[in-house]
């Protein structure tokens, strides 16, 4: 199993790497299109601001590589958001893998959402063995609304997508690497998809 974490200078990839180590897998950090394309599994991480992360992705040319990948790809947090059609944050054009526009949480809730929330309506093998209403850890100000690609829902003032799926592409808004046992099951599932 060759597992690659896309390294484009956006975010805390050490935690994701450690999480896979705890599962017994060694993840390689890479910004090489060749190495990423040849991997069995690809993780697309990201924290921070959308437009600057997208600029870094474009500067490396990886914005053209990622949508063409054929193996299972998992976007995490901002990684998932960049896989969407667009993000309201910095008026950012996304990779267009998921046909949904990321928007900011509105009035009535504190922004960012920080902490443990529940995931429900779990679909696909990514959530095999994960109980409905399991708690996962999130930190985010923007969200993907519910759509046809939604494979897990969560609620913060309104319902939103906690996870998205299309073909070989998966995205999770939460941080599986920080979501205790539930997160470990999800990462393990991703490796067996």
């Amino acid at each position: 199993m060759k597992l690659v974490i896309i390294n484009y200078g956006a975010g805390n990839i050490q935690s994701i790497r450690f999480a896979f180590e705890r599962l017994g897998y060694n993840a390689v950090l890479s910004d090489s299109a060749e190495e990423i394309s040849a991997a069995d599994r690809v993780i697309f991480p990201g924290v921070g601001e959308a437009s600057s992360a997208m600029r870094k992705l474009k500067a490396s040319g990886l914005d053209r590589v990622i949508p063409g990948l054929k193996q299972p790809v998992l976007g995490i947090c901002l990684g998932m958001q960049l896989m969407c059609h667009s993000s309201e944050e910095g008026s950012t054009e996304g990779l267009g893998i998921f046909d949904v526009d990321v928007v900011k949480f509105g009035a009535g809730v504190k922004v960012p959402q920080i902490g443990w929330n529940e995931i429900s309506n779990l679909k696909t093998g990514l959530f095999e063995g994960v109980a409905e209403n399991s708690h996962i850890y999130l930190v985010h100000s923007y969200y993907a609304p519910l759509c046809s690609a939604t494979i897990a829902t969560s609620d913060y003032g309104l319902g939103y997508s906690a996870a998205l799926h299309r073909d070989n592409f998966y995205g999770v808004q939460f941080h599986p690497e920080k979501s205790s046992v539930a997160g470990e099951i999800i990462l393990d599932n991703f490796l067996s998809l």
């Binding site: 450690f18 999480a19 180590e21 930190v139 920080k178 979501s179 205790s180 997160g183 470990e184």
Partner: peptide, 11 residues
Amino acid sequence: VRRVAAKVNIP
């Protein structure tokens, strides 16, 4: 920090 991050699965 590195040793904690390697072992702990919460933020």
